[in-house]
Each structure stands twice: as structure tokens, then as C-alpha cells.
Simulated assay, not measured.
Amino acid sequence: MKTFRTDTYGGIDSLILQHAEPPGALAAGQVRVGMRAASLNYRDLMALAGQLRGPKEGLIALSDGAGEVLEVAPDVTHIAVGDRVALTFNTGWLGGPWRPDPTCLTTRCCPLQGVMQEQMVVQHSELVLLPEQLSFAEGACLPCAGVTAWHALCGERPLLPGMVVLLQGAGGVATLGLQLAKLFGARVIMISSSDERCQRLRALGADETINYKTVPEWQAAVRDLTGGRGVDLAIDLGGAETIDRSIAATAMGGRLAPVGLVTGWPNTVSSIFTASVDITPVRVGSRDDFQNLLRAMAFHGVQPVIDRHFSFEQLPEALRYLESGKHFGKIVIDF
């Protein structure tokens, strides 16, 4: 079978396309999945560059994938051959709050191996069934970005109609976060890097947009749009260069959900003690979160926004496109 891996953690250029033997016989509780699609996240660039806890023996790329069940162990009764499934991101976090123990630290593609392999053998608990309306490509968009957006919106507190949510950018978490926030009846303000992207976000459902290239002090613009109050929930994807502004855009008693590190790790947050904002970092989410997300998407007919499809062999090209920041929505690899 084909795999895409790095042995040196030297970034995109260190990726090598290899042929390997398929996984061996199933043990109790295991399922064999024929992978059909994967999607890219910014953390994949960090993993390939050695910035995450990658395995010493090298890393198979990408964390998010979906496929078809090819074989099940005799003791697995709730999953059948032919089922369409997506793999969970936090393989050991089944439900409840996140805990700093080994169970909740088993994330796919650092420290575990990734999904860029034509077959995978996993525990049955690492799979969720896809609803009929989602394709393999759409299902592959959800394990990290979709669950992150869902958990950021409602994992810590209920998101109620009329609340105001601030989102950044136009990638997977941002577009899925917008689609989901509108299901809750929220007002959504988004910042992005061009008027064209802001227009596309409004077409997708954003109530107001701000071009942060022309309005660098966008936190003040957010305050103006909310009558000086600020937003109830700010989902911060930028990291070092945005988190202080996100806090400044959030109402007293509101919540900041740090999600991404596009501009690096924050060093200090000068306003953390004066803003009276709850800060709840998002570590993607549990299998229960994933299943709740899928139920909501199936009921409301929500489908993730996919920017471009690439073939298996085009993974390096797809990652460079991700690195460029030009995508709108998710980038998918078709197997």
C-alpha cells in the first residue's frame, strides 16, 4: 500500500512516498479501514517540521481521514463491513472533560501515526459513522477542524440565540464555525485578509466582516459593531499576533477560546488579568463531541466548504497551498 511519511521532520520537502505492507491480522476490538480521503490542517505543517511530539521512527502525515470498513474483528458488533466512517482525532478521549493524562493525549499524527496510508487498523472506539449526506471527502474535513469548531462554540458553555461570536480567517475552523454558529442563532462577526474573502464569508452567512489588512485595529471595529460591549465568544486562530486583540474584542464576562497557532505561540497576554474574560483553550474534542456534531450537521443539512481536491501523490503540493494561506475552507486529498 502507498504511504506518505517523513523520517527527518524536515518539513514538506522531507516527505517521501513509500510502499509498505498493509497492516496484519486484526486483534480483538479492531477494525480495518480502507482510507478514501484525508484533509489538511495547519498543525500538519507543524508536525512535519518537528514542532509537535512526533514518533522517533518517523511520521505518516495528516491527522484527519475517512474511509470504508473492510474488515471487523469477531467481537465488534456495532460496525459492519461497508460502513462509511471517519477517524477520531483524540483517539482516547471518548467523552467528558479533557484530562492531562495518557488517555487524552493520544492524538492522531503526533504522537500517533497519521492517515496518509491506504489501509489502517484501529480500535472500534476510534471510529464514528458518517451520515448519508456526507461524502468521504466531507467526512474527512471534520475530525480536527469540525470538532474544534463545535467544541469551541458550545463545549464549555451553551451558545444561545442572539449571542455574538467572533471568528478569524476563512479556513476550515472558521468556515465550519460560521456554519455551526448560525445553527445556534448567533450573530457572527468575522475578520479576514481581503474584501473578496469577506464577501464570500458574508455569502456563507456572516453578519458582519472586517478586512484586517485595511483595519489593523480590528478589535476596535468589533467593539463599534457591538455598541462598545464586545462579543460573547471570540475564537482565536491566530495565536501570538491576535490573542491580545481577541481579548480586547470580548465583552466582560465573555469567553475567549484559543484554537490555533498560525502566527506562533503566544508569549504573554498583557490584558489577561484586566479583561474579566474566561479563557478556555480548545483541544479539539471528544468522540461524543464528534457524534453530536454529525447529528447536528445531518439534521440541518450542513456540508463543509471544500476549496480544492488533490490526489494522493499531490500531498506536497496541497501542503504548499495550505501554507500559502490562499484557501477558503478545507483542502482535501482523494485516495
Rank of each mutant, 00 (worst) to 15 (best):
A257I: 01
I235P: 10
D236P: 09
A296L: 14
I279A: 05
D236Q: 13
P266T: 12
T226I: 04
R308E: 11
G264W: 04
L261E: 04
R229D: 02
P304T: 06
R287L: 11
Q291E: 15
D278L: 11
F310D: 05
L294T: 09
A251T: 12
F310W: 09
F299R: 15
T274Q: 10
W265L: 14
V284L: 07
G264C: 06
D278R: 13
P266L: 09
I306Y: 07
S270M: 03
R308I: 02
V231T: 10
P258D: 11
A240T: 06
V282T: 10
L261A: 09
R287K: 15
R295H: 13
R245V: 00
T250W: 07
L261K: 03
Q303P: 00
E241Y: 00
D278P: 00
G230V: 05
T250Y: 03
E241I: 00
R229W: 01
F273C: 09
G238Q: 11
S286Y: 10
S271R: 14
R255E: 01
V277A: 05
H300P: 03
I243D: 13
L237R: 03
G285V: 09
V269Y: 03
R308K: 14
A275Y: 00
L237G: 15
G301P: 06
A249S: 15
F273N: 10
R229G: 00
P258K: 13
A251E: 12
M297C: 14
G230P: 07
R308L: 07
T242M: 06
D244Y: 01
H300Q: 14
P281T: 08
V282D: 03
G253N: 08
S276V: 04
G238L: 15
D236K: 11
A251L: 02
F290D: 04
R255N: 00
A240S: 15
V259N: 12
V284I: 15
A296S: 13
T268D: 05
L237D: 09
P281S: 08
D289A: 15
I247H: 02
L237M: 15
F299Y: 14
G228E: 03
V305F: 02
P258I: 11
S246Q: 11
D288M: 07
G264Q: 11
R223H: 03
A257Y: 00
D289S: 14
L261Q: 09
A275V: 02
F273T: 11
L294F: 08
L261N: 12
F299N: 11
Q303W: 00
M252P: 13
G239Q: 12
R255L: 01
L237E: 05
L225M: 15
S286E: 12
V269R: 06
G260I: 09
A296H: 09
G228M: 02
R245M: 11
F299W: 14
M297A: 11
W265Y: 09
P266S: 12
D278I: 07
I247Y: 01
G228L: 03
H309A: 04
I279W: 04
S276K: 06
V305H: 13
G254S: 07
I279R: 06
L293I: 11
D232N: 02
D232R: 01
G301V: 07
V277N: 06
S271P: 00
A275E: 02
L233T: 02
F290A: 13
D288Y: 04
N267F: 04
L293R: 10
P281Y: 08
G238V: 15
L256Y: 01
V277D: 04
V284Y: 06
G254C: 06
R255P: 01
S270N: 09
S286Q: 12
S270A: 12
